[in-house]
């Protein structure tokens, strides 16, 4: 994850607390989903950025999760996510991101 973006996320968490805060991801494959989910829960796995060793423990969700989808505007969802729903490995992505919420 971009180092400046890690700093921004860290700052948000530090200044306003993490109450009621969640992370929503839009990665197209399981590998990059894991990378970002890991960064905002356990810390930057590459140990390069401001979140290295900072376990924010934020609840992390993916835009492809059915529970997330059903809360969003259906037309908008189809416009922005419709193709990825067809092309991505949805089951694996959902399984990976869920694993970061159960630990």
């Amino acid at each position: 994850m971009d180092l400046d973006d890690q700093a921004s996320v860290n700052r948000l968490a530090e200044t306003n607390g993490t109450d009621n805060m969640i992370v929503l991801l839009g990665q197209p494959d399981p590998d990059s989903t894991v990378l970002f989910a890991e960064t905002v829960t356990r810390g930057d796995p590459t140990w390069a950025g401001p979140l290295a060793g900072v376990p924010l423990g934020l609840p992390v969700y993916h835009i492809l999760e059915p529970d997330i989808k059903q809360q969003m505007d259906a037309t908008l969802y189809d416009e922005h996510v419709g193709l990825m729903e067809l092309s991505a490995n949805v089951d694996e992505i959902v399984e990976e991101v869920r694993a970061y919420r159960s630990t």
Binding site: Q27, P28, D29, D31, S32, V34, L35, S87, A88
Partner: peptide
């Protein structure tokens, strides 16, 4: 962890 960019695009 950056995925297979062309494959994602082709899919």
């Amino acid at each position: 962890g950056s995925g297979d960019v062309p494959l994602t695009n082709y899919r």
